[in-house]
Amino acid sequence: NQASVVANQLIPINTALALVMMRSEVVTPVGIPAEDIPRLVSMQVNRAVPLGTTLMPDMVKGYA
């Protein structure tokens, strides 16, 4: 199964993503693939992302 990017902490709106904020986990539904974690670093989220939430492409500015 494909691992997705999951929030490792609460990520406030407009926060630039850092490695420590993300982990990979096999979840349903599938979100952003875990292999894209390096690409996500320094991109901003466009909403608050609670701990344990799967990151979806529409949550990250400039990802989709």
Rank of each mutant, 00 (worst) to 15 (best):
N1P: 15
N1A: 15
Q2M: 12
Q2W: 15
Q2C: 13
Q2R: 05
A3C: 14
A3E: 14
A3Q: 10
S4G: 04
S4H: 02
S4T: 04
S4R: 01
V5K: 00
V5L: 03
V5M: 02
V5S: 02
V5I: 09
V6I: 13
A7K: 01
A7V: 09
N8F: 04
N8V: 08
N8H: 07
Q9N: 07
Q9R: 15
L10R: 11
L10I: 09
L10F: 15
L10G: 09
L10T: 09
P12I: 05
P12G: 08
I13T: 12
I13Q: 13
I13E: 12
N14C: 15
N14Q: 11
T15W: 06
T15Y: 14
T15M: 09
T15I: 07
T15F: 07
A16T: 11
A16H: 13
L17R: 00
L17G: 01
A18R: 12
L19F: 14
L19T: 09
L19K: 07
V20R: 14
V20E: 10
V20K: 14
M21N: 05
M21V: 03
M22I: 10
M22T: 01
M22V: 06
R23T: 05
R23V: 05
R23S: 06
S24F: 07
S24R: 13
S24P: 15
E25H: 09
E25T: 08
E25G: 11
V26D: 14
V26C: 07
V26S: 10
V26T: 09
V26R: 05
V26P: 08
V27I: 06
V27C: 05
V27K: 08
P29Q: 05
P29G: 03
P29K: 05
P29N: 04
V30I: 15
V30E: 15
I32E: 00
I32K: 01
P33R: 08
P33G: 07
A34T: 06
A34C: 07
A34Q: 05
E35G: 11
E35T: 10
D36V: 08
D36R: 07
D36P: 00
I37E: 01
I37M: 15
I37D: 01
P38G: 13
P38Q: 12
P38T: 10
P38Y: 14
P38M: 10
P38E: 09
R39W: 11
R39K: 13
L40H: 01
L40R: 00
L40E: 00
L40N: 00
V41A: 05
V41T: 05
V41G: 02
S42E: 09
M43Q: 07
M43V: 04
M43P: 00
M43H: 09
M43Y: 12
M43W: 07
M43R: 11
Q44K: 14
Q44E: 10
Q44P: 06
V45W: 01
V45L: 12
V45N: 01
N46V: 11
N46W: 08
N46G: 07
N46F: 09
N46I: 11
N46H: 09
R47T: 10
R47K: 08
R47N: 06
A48W: 09
A48V: 13
A48H: 13
A48P: 08
P50S: 10
P50R: 07
P50G: 11
L51T: 12
G52R: 05
G52H: 08
G52M: 05
T53V: 10
T53C: 08
T53R: 14
T53W: 14
T53K: 09
T54P: 06
T54D: 02
T54E: 01
T54W: 02
T54C: 05
L55K: 01
L55F: 09
L55Q: 00
L55E: 00
M56D: 04
M56V: 06
M56N: 05
M56C: 11
M56I: 06
M56F: 09
M56S: 06
P57M: 07
P57T: 06
P57H: 11
P57F: 08
P57C: 08
P57E: 07
D58M: 11
D58R: 07
D58N: 09
D58I: 08
D58C: 14
M59R: 02
M59W: 07
M59Q: 04
M59K: 01
V60G: 00
V60R: 01
V60F: 04
K61S: 13
K61P: 07
K61L: 11
G62Y: 15
G62A: 09
G62L: 11
Y63C: 04
Y63P: 03
Y63V: 04
Y63E: 03
Y63H: 04
Y63F: 07
A64L: 13
A64R: 10
